[in-house]
Design a binder for these strands. Structure first.
Lengths: 249, 249
DNA sequence: CGGGATATTGAGTTAGTTCAACACAGGTGG
DNA sequence: CCACCTGTGTTGAACTAACTCAATATCCCG
């Protein structure tokens, strides 16, 4: 498939992530290393998968722009979305330690990715302790999000789950400064919500509708508005300090 | 509570984990570092919690002997068990990167833990690239287990979930060489199973019973026997390469 | 215009829940 | 030694949140 395209290699100095407040400022030496750590950039079309379960990837990725999601499936059609990836998220670290990747990543929007060669990871370990720590932070943050997600799917009701997911994504967008007041672009369908939360599509639709009838939110194709954030938080038992932890690079 | 006890500091040379095949052999320099990285040992009584959600811990832990579990709760009584910790598992890395821990860890059996001071983590980053990589492996493995768990809770039926969990724990025990043929010690109650899998206690009991009626397994207090591993794998859609990835130290 | 993807809604079904009662074992104090 | 309590497991019955099936509406796109 011609869905992946290499692009011209943007210099790190103008990296879109560099401007965001939530990212740590690098020292000159770190910056130089990161620059040569970067092996290139690719664009992925919506619907394309650039990391595939059971395969091996020579590259690691950082999302520069766009949305993607990670998922796993059972033999039959049942699919579970594990997480959504936004700018700043690091993908594919598993491939640096296991022979095979255990999940698939699919783009939701046109996606711009920064690629790193797996083999240079050793240079990072050897020469850049602070970056090692940043990497551990990223991975601790991913673990934390997975834990919260598991609590949501295991122990929350349908309405709580949907409220939680929307608040979670809303807050991540706010941290990245890509929300617009109380609304934000959400390039997913109700099927994605269902698969992320372990619900059926029909029930997801009905629950979403009921949240709209309660005037808590508004759902449109591609965008969500949070009318009553406090009310939604209360309904979903949203736990404050969930997301918005600082990413990397 | 006097449930945590410091014990005499066992030299790493006789670490019970050193003997296990699944752990990487360290170089002399690494070994020396790990030895001074270790700050001590503690014992935790069954039922005691040594890492607590919302608190901050100055220490990181590696399980040397015994079982524990990590969990999170909602305001009401609803509890979700996130994972079970066995010998070789590393706990508390979150506290090295966030100010507060986001989960609680409770001992299931008398637990012997190796403690590391958080501050020495920087020495590890600075001087021991291979150990950095081991740490990344541990954390990638934890992420992988969390992903699989999420798929299980989100998309499997009750019988599949229980079958999956038992096979998962069975395989981890086999990898650690603490299984006895087709049976293994499992120091948990049905309540733990329910809370790990997002099920009610009653339904867990009935489903467990039905797996026993099918002659797939046998459940006793504290021990499980897998009568028909192939059958249980088929029923649970057990995905081969799940656990048994190599831990650390 | 037709086909595919998405959303919506009603109706009937079911997997899993809650409530309640009871059995059994081990531990403790009178 | 017995009485009692608490933790664990078991089972039946009634209920319900969420599921499946099915039909229909919209929109976009080639």
């Amino acid at each position: 498939m011609a869905k992946l395209r290499k692009t011209t290699h943007t210099p790190c100095a103008v990296c879109p992530l560099g401007a965001k407040d939530i990212f740590r400022k690098l020292t000159a030496a770190e910056f130089k290393f990161v620059q040569q750590f970067k092996s290139g950039e690719i664009l992925a079309e919506p619907g394309s998968t650039f990391l595939i379960e059971g395969h091996n990837s020579p590259s690691l990725y950082t999302v520069l722009e766009g949305w993607a999601f990670r998922y796993k499936s059972l033999e039959d059609d049942r699919r579970q979305i594990l997480s959504f990836a936004l700018p700043g998220d690091f993908l594919g670290i598993q491939s640096a330690v296991f022979s095979e990747l255990q999940y698939t990543v699919e783009a939701l929007t046109p996606l711009r990715l920064c690629t790193f060669s797996r083999s240079k990871l050793w240079d990072l370990y050897s020469g850049h302790p602070a970056l090692c720590h940043d990497l551990m932070s990223l991975s601790a943050r991913a673990e934390q999000m997975a834990d919260v997600h598991l609590l949501t799917v295991g122990r929350r009701t349908a309405a709580e789950r949907i409220g939680y997911l929307l608040l979670h994504l809303f807050n991540r967008c706010k941290a990245l400064d890509i929300a617009r007041g109380s609304s934000f672009d959400l390039p997913i369908t109700q099927t994605h919500i269902a698969d992320a939360l372990g619900l059926s599509l029909v029930h997801t639709n009905k629950t979403l509708r009921s949240l709209m009838n309660l005037k808590l939110i508004n759902w449109e194709v591609g965008a969500v508005e949070i009318y009553d954030e406090a009310g939604l938080r209360a309904l979903s038992k949203y736990d404050e300090d969930d997301s918005a932890k600082r990413p990397f690079i």
